[in-house]
Amino acid sequence: MDLRTNYLGLDLAHPIMPSASPLSKGLDKVKRLEDAGAPAITVYSLFEEQIDQESHQLDHFLEFGTDSFAEALSYFPDLGNYNVGPDEYLNLIRDAKQNTSIPIIGSLNGVSDGGWTRYAKLIQEAGADALELNVYYIPTDPKLTSADVESLYIDVVKAVRAEVTIPLAVKVGPYFSSPANVLSRIVEAGADGLVLFNRFYQPDFDLEALEVVPRVVLSTSDDLRLPLRWTAILHGRIGADIALTSGVHCHEDVIKALMAGASVVQVAAELMHNGPSRIKELLAALTAWLEEREYTSVKQMIGSMSQKSVREPAAFERANYMKALASWSDDPTGKLI
């Protein structure tokens, strides 16, 4: 079975790759992913905040209270060089390239077009085969219009594009007034690929402490449907590769994603739950499924159920919504009627 696929111009052995996550935090973990069969790795994200804040924070606490007391002018020895977040990250990219034989994709998470974008170039110089730009933005200002928000995305993509010559993928969330329009403009701004979608982790309330707390809920297969719809809608219409992420847990999810038009799927929660060896299990199940149905290659099925390819394109649109509501009258719970 020919499982090969092509993503961002990179020839990959198969389409199931780990997404940016703690799964790749450290060279030993990167190597473990390669050993488990990962065809490429998107390394965990370097955050804009890390670039600016981590070094400032380290410096602040090294200097805090110094030269204030007669008896102690400092509280820490001077260790010379510190590998704050960005240095450590660039070292990992460098080490990963030297110690693996698969494509390594750097990941940069930011939202402003400030100085941090130079790290895109540094990631390229460290040897990354491609870069994934993750734009995670919560527009809370009521005065900010949707046009302002969209411009912010486009500007960031342009700023990063200007820094690198390697392929660039852009990972965004689904919440735009007109996702198809914004995503196609992101491609026009220089993206070679789209990663659909970012998951917006919603904060929770701790009722005992009366505090807003972060609570990461890992995805389930139910989360697949949103990126699945938009992958299917966009495939073949925007001139960029699509990586589907969020909700890929079993081989059926992989197949659906490919059929919708994704060149690759990116998996995190499933590998965090069951370990990197899960890649081989998914691959075996995918292969068996394809063989049973006499497919000859993965490429053959990519986009086979995209909006352009299906008989009823309306299934992805408003008509589908009406059908979904109408189907509820069947009352699958048996409790309403």
Binding site: S74, Y75, F76
Partner: peptide, 24 residues
Amino acid sequence: EVYSNTGGQASKSTAMGAVAKFAA
């Protein structure tokens, strides 16, 4: 866990892995 007043020298109370003067 450190000589505070004299500027952060390690004492025998300093925890493993902590950086202090004389334990850089």
